[in-house]
């Protein structure tokens, strides 16, 4: 509140409420309006298109099949189905392995780019920025054109006389490879600022104390960077859980033989099943929401701990 410019602060009903007489309702209303009016269009947009939809989904998942009153029937039914259990498990496994691979490739990449000279740094940041924005169906197609069954790399390797079979387009390894195309750049771009925290002086100081590189990374570098890397892992995990476009492009076409993912199940429940579809999709959406919220909360906690070093 210290930043309030004085003339406005005097007008505002909210901030200057400590007046002698309690203001009339109209004056109060005016004060409220003065405090919130410019934000109202945004708040309207956000409440109708983000908050309300989320609440409607949660509500719908508990009011099953047109019955009145709350019930968990549909929850048991949906979560009891093998395909849905499979989808939840596969999504979690895929997200966790994607995030781990991203961490293994992204952490060194991020560290090295953060220590580059300006020119090459700009080149890599630009490249990663473009790759991070590429996704969806286009990326699914690029994957198929590269190592699909008749993709370029597949043909090259086979042309060398090696008996090589590309992973099926709807399989987990294929999804993982395609997902990494956007995950690694996102991870690097998110963690690069944290890499600047580790100062070069500390390594010199550690050397003066006769520390080896290994000791330095285990005692100083690792512990300082770990929370940021963990936070990056969690974000990639969350985002991977929710990827739909790439999965639809790659796995969608093989139909029943493809992997089950939560997002794909939501999409197909909407398209196939008019009567039960929305309820079923709502439950899967709430499950997805629960995972995402949990990991976002964890992410915030971890980041707050990491802040100690700033």
């Amino acid at each position: 509140m210290a930043t309030l410019s004085r003339p406005y602060a005097k007008l505002g009903g909210l901030e200057s409420a400590g007046g002698s007489a309690s203001p009339s309702p109209i004056a109060r209303m005016r004060g409220w309006l003065a405090a919130w009016l410019p934000a109202i269009p945004l708040l309207l947009l956000v409440s109708t298109c983000l908050i309300a939809p989320v609440l409607v989904l949660i509500w719908q998942s508990f009011t099953s099949m047109g019955e009145t009153g709350l019930s968990l029937d549909l929850w048991f039914k949906v979560l009891g189905q093998h395909a849905n259990q499979d989808a939840i498990l596969t999504s979690l496994v895929l997200a966790a392995s994607c995030a781990t691979v991203t961490l293994i490739i992204g952490a060194p990449l991020s560290w090295m780019i953060s220590r580059m000279l300006r020119g090459s740094r700009a080149f890599w940041l630009g490249l990663l920025n473009v790759a991070a924005n590429f996704g969806g169906i286009g990326l699914a197609f690029a994957y198929m054109a590269t190592i699909g069954s008749v993709g370029m790399l597949t043909l090259i390797v086979q042309g060398l006389g090696i008996n090589f079979e590309a992973p099926r387009e709807g399989s987990l390894p294929a999804l993982l490879m395609a997902y990494e195309y956007t995950n690694v750049p996102l991870f690097v771009l998110l963690t690069i600022p944290a890499m600047a925290i580790l100062r070069d002086d500390w390594w010199e100081a550690a050397q003066t104390a006769a520390a080896t590189r290994l000791v330095f990374w285990r005692r100083i570098g690792g512990p300082i960077l770990a929370p940021f890397l963990a936070a990056g892992w969690l974000l990639i995990f969350t985002w991977t859980l929710g990827i739909y476009g790439i999965a639809y492009g790659l796995a969608g076409q093989s139909g029943a033989t493809a992997v089950h993912l939560i997002t794909l199940q939501i999409g197909s429940a909407l398209q196939s099943d008019v009567l039960l579809g929305p309820g079923r999709a709502a439950i899967l959406a709430v499950v997805l929401m629960a995972f995402a919220t949990t990991s976002l909360v964890l992410y915030r906690i971890i980041l707050r701990r990491a802040m100690r070093w700033l």
């Binding site: 934000a39 945004l42 708040l43 956000v46 409440s47 109708t48 298109c49 983000l50 908050i51 309300a52 939809p53 989320v54 409607v56 989904l57 719908q60 969350t238 859980l241 929710g242 990827i243 739909y244 997002t263 939501i266 999409g267 909407l270 929305p278 999709a281 709502a282 959406a285 997805l288 929401m289 995402a292 919220t293 990991s295 976002l296």
Partner: peptide
């Protein structure tokens, strides 16, 4: 504070979920 809470929704939740909710709403 309000904006930051709202911004966390598309940040964390998959667009499929938001889209489906918006359709129902």
């Amino acid at each position: 504070h309000v904006i930051e809470v709202a911004a966390a929704v598309p940040f964390a939740l998959p667009y499929v979920v938001i889209a489906f909710g918006l359709m129902q709403f």
